[in-house]
C-alpha cells in the first residue's frame, strides 16, 4: 500500500530525512516512533504530497506521489498533529467541503458524517463555527473528515493528542476497521504502550535515518517497546 524508497529531504543545509525506505502492506498498522525533530512529521508530510522531497520515491498503491499526486491523494487521508482547520466554516460545512473535493456522494457523506459524529459525540456541534471548537473537537473533526472518503491509506501524526479517552478508544477501533477491510495506516506517536498494543509494525527513526523497521514482535522481542526505544537512543 505504501512504499517509501530512499526518501531524502533537506531543509536548507540541514538533512531532515536521510535515505529512508520502508514498505507497509495492506491490512497493517505501522507505528512511527522517534524523538522530537527526528524527521517523523517531515516523512509523513512527504508521503501525503504536502512537502516536496529531494531524493527518493514514494508509492501509494503502486502510484508515485510525484507523478500522480492527485491519484495518490484520492486514496489516502492525512491527520496532522495540530488540526488547524478552516475556522471560518462550521463543522458541517467543512465536512461537506472535504466530501466535495473527494467527490463523495450525498447519501454516502450523510451516512458517514452522521455515524462518526455520533460516535465522537460532536453531532450537536457541527452547526457551530470551527473557531469555537476546542483542540479535541477539532481533532475529532479532522478524524471524521479523514474518514469520509473511505481512504485506503491513513497517515496520522500524533492522532491521540487532545482526544478524550473514549474518542481515543474509538479512533483505535476505527484504525483496526480500516486495516480489516484491506487499508493501511502509518502513524506517528510518542505513546509507546499504545504503539506496542495497536501496531502490526514499528518503524523507529533517529536523526532522519530509519534505524529499526519490522513487525512489533520482531522489534520488541520479549522487552517493552519503551525499553527498545530507550536502548536505541542510548539512554539505557
Amino acid at each position: 500500500m505504501l512504499e517509501i524508497k530512499n526518501l531524502t529531504k533537506y531543509y536548507g543545509d540541514r538533512l531532515a530525512v536521510d535515505d529512508l525506505s520502508l514498505h507497509i502492506e495492506p491490512g497493517k498498522i505501522c507505528g512511527f516512533i522517534g524523538r522530537n525533530g527526528a524527521g517523523k512529521t517531515t516523512t509523513l508530510k512527504s508521503v501525503c504530497g504536502i512537502l516536496q522531497f529531494d531524493e527518493g520515491e514514494i508509492l501509494i498503491g503502486g502510484k508515485s506521489i510525484k507523478d500522480d499526486p492527485i491519484g495518490c491523494k484520492k486514496r489516502m487521508a492525512y491527520i496532522p498533529d495540530n488540526p488547524d482547520l478552516y475556522d471560518f466554516m462550521t463543522g458541517i460545512k467543512y465536512l461537506n467541503f472535504i466530501a466535495d473535493v473527494y467527490s463523495v456522494s450525498t447519501a454516502e457523506r450523510a451516512t458517514k458524517i452522521e455515524r462518526y459524529a455520533k460516535e465522537f459525540e460532536i453531532s450537536d456541534d457541527l452547526n457551530q463555527l470551527i473557531s469555537t471548537y476546542s483542540h479535541g473537537m477539532k481533532q475529532k473533526l479532522a478524524i471524521i473528515s479523514a474518514l469520509i472518503h473511505t481512504p485506503d491509506l491513513l497517515i496520522m501524526d500524533e492522532p491521540f493528542v487532545g482526544l478524550d479517552p473514549l474518542a481515543a478508544h474509538r479512533t483505535k477501533e476505527i484504525m483496526r476497521e480500516i486495516c480489516d477491510r484491506g487499508g493501511a495506516i502509518f502513524f506517528s506517536t510518542h505513546v509507546l504502550d499504545v504503539a506496542q498494543k495497536l501496531c502490526d509494525e514499528i518503524a523507529i527513526i533517529k536523526d532522519g535515518r530509519l534505524v529499526v523497521f519490522g513487525s512489533t514482535e520482531e522489534v520488541s522481542g520479549n522487552k517493552s517497546l519503551e525499553g527498545v526505544f530507550l536502548e536505541l537512543e542510548g539512554e539505557v
Partner: peptide, 16 residues
C-alpha cells in the same frame, strides 16, 4: 448552541 438546526448535506464538484 444551534443544535436544533438539521445538518445539511449538499454536493458540489471539487472545483466548485
Amino acid at each position: 448552541k444551534n443544535t436544533d438546526a438539521p445538518l445539511r448535506f449538499k454536493k458540489s464538484s471539487p472545483k466548485t
